[in-house]
Structures are given as structure tokens and as C-alpha cells.
Computed example of a mutant assay.
Amino acid sequence: MKELTREVGGRTKIAVHSRDDSIDPVGACVGLKGSRVQAVVSELGGERIDIVPWHPDPEIFARRALAPARVAKVISDPRRQVITAIVDEDQLSLAIGRNGQNVRLASQLIGWQIDLYGSREWLERGSDMSVFVEDEEDSYETADFPLTELSLDRATLGALGAAGYRSFLDIIDLDRGDFLAVEGITEEAVDQLLELIDDLTVVDSDAARGGDAPLGAKGGPG
């Protein structure tokens, strides 16, 4: 384990690394079918745990730390230790997290301030539109996490898996009708799934900001 930051009772982000290239550090921590991380989650009363691969490059690390959101572009200012992260509009609430928790913990994890912009605001500011043209150097994958990390019963996990839904990003855009169309999913399970998605993605009014100030969080604890 390289870095860890936590808001007790809410969410923890952990960055892990292995010196052996043949070992997947995230998979080793999650365990078979999420068994290891789920045991810890249970001990913590259902507290969310994000495990991401550590990287020495702050731009790559920032992308991973903002998981499960997909980041379109990051720009770093090493002198000020500030990361500017731009995400598509459909990823903005996920990147911010509930009450700003995701971006705040990501900032603490990497030790740099993260200024977060949605694509619309970024373009309205007259900033470079080319950030949304994918190139190989910036096409890093954002870490996802399996549904087994969520507090779902076996029947629900089995039904979702049979329908091809195995990770959080697979279900994040589904609505009630989509879930009810999955064979074997109960109304109670749908309510639980929608609540989980809401908890992980909805931004309360306290997380909003006015003017041209970016959504951001200071690095470091506190």
C-alpha cells in the first residue's frame, strides 16, 4: 500500500503498488470475487472502499484517483502542485461525488490540489477544445470496481451478472425500468441499487460553486 485517505463512516481511497509486474496489486487486495475487500467493508459497517493502482506520474495518478469517473484530460502545474482535471458532463457528478467527497479524497490521496471542470464550462471559458481529442499518451484507463464490492445479495449479483452487468460503470446509467427488465431482480433490489448509485454519484447543493471557480479540493489531510 502506497497511499491511503479516509473519511470515517463514508469512504476510503487506497493506492496500491507491486514491485512484481506479474502481480496485480488491485486484484490482490480485492480478492477472489471481492472476498478480501468485502470482509473489510463489512467490518467497517458498509463503508465504501476504492482501491486504485498507484503511479509516480501525478497526472496518471490523478486520473486513477478520481475513479470511478472517467477523466478526459489532466493538466499539471508541478510548481503549484495543482492538477486541472476535465471530465465530460455525464461524468461530472461521479467525479465530484456526494458532497464533493470523491474529488476531495482523490486530492488528498495524490497530495496535490485538484481543480475539476466539466467539459461545458471548460469550453465556455475559451479553453483548448483539443483536450477532448483522444491521443495515445492520454488514453489511460480509469479503474473500475466489481459489483461484488457493493453490499448486494447473491441473487441480485447473479441476476446482474447473467445480464452482463459486472461492474459499477456497467450499471451507473441504468434507471428503474432498466433494472426491472433484468430477470430475477426484485423491486427491493432495484431500490437498493438506485440508492447505491445515488449515494456514489449525487452532488448535494453544498458541493456546487458559483462564478468561474473550478470544483476543487486541497491536497493533504484535513
Score class of each variant (00 low, 15 high):
3 E>Y: 07
6 R>S: 13
9 G>M: 06
10 G>K: 11
11 R>Y: 05
13 K>I: 04
17 H>C: 04
18 S>D: 07
24 D>N: 13
27 G>K: 12
27 G>D: 05
27 G>W: 12
30 V>T: 09
31 G>K: 12
33 K>R: 15
34 G>T: 01
35 S>K: 01
39 A>V: 06
39 A>Q: 11
40 V>M: 11
41 V>C: 10
45 G>H: 09
47 E>F: 03
50 D>W: 10
52 V>E: 08
53 P>V: 10
53 P>S: 08
55 H>I: 06
57 D>H: 00
57 D>R: 03
58 P>D: 07
58 P>Y: 07
59 E>R: 14
62 A>P: 01
63 R>D: 11
63 R>K: 14
66 L>M: 15
69 A>Y: 07
72 A>F: 05
73 K>S: 06
74 V>D: 02
75 I>E: 12
76 S>R: 08
77 D>R: 10
79 R>E: 15
79 R>T: 15
80 R>A: 14
82 V>Q: 07
87 V>F: 01
88 D>F: 14
91 Q>I: 09
92 L>P: 02
92 L>W: 02
93 S>M: 10
95 A>E: 03
99 N>I: 06
102 N>V: 15
104 R>D: 15
109 L>D: 05
112 W>N: 08
113 Q>P: 02
116 L>E: 06
117 Y>N: 03
117 Y>C: 03
117 Y>W: 15
118 G>E: 08
119 S>F: 02
120 R>P: 07
120 R>T: 15
125 R>T: 08
127 S>P: 00
129 M>K: 05
130 S>G: 03
131 V>W: 11
131 V>Q: 13
133 V>Y: 11
134 E>R: 14
135 D>V: 14
136 E>C: 11
142 T>G: 03
142 T>M: 04
143 A>G: 05
143 A>V: 05
145 F>P: 01
146 P>V: 10
153 D>H: 01
158 G>W: 02
158 G>N: 10
161 G>V: 03
161 G>Y: 00
163 A>L: 08
164 G>L: 02
167 S>P: 04
168 F>P: 11
171 I>E: 06
171 I>Y: 06
173 D>I: 10
173 D>L: 12
174 L>M: 12
175 D>F: 09
175 D>P: 00
176 R>H: 12
176 R>M: 09
177 G>Y: 09
179 F>R: 03
181 A>G: 14
186 T>G: 02
191 D>T: 08
191 D>H: 06
192 Q>T: 15
194 L>A: 05
194 L>W: 06
199 D>T: 05
205 S>H: 10
205 S>V: 09
207 A>M: 04
208 A>S: 07
208 A>V: 00
211 G>I: 03
212 D>R: 04
213 A>G: 03
214 P>R: 03
215 L>T: 13
216 G>D: 10
216 G>N: 11
219 G>V: 01
221 P>S: 12
222 G>H: 12
222 G>D: 13
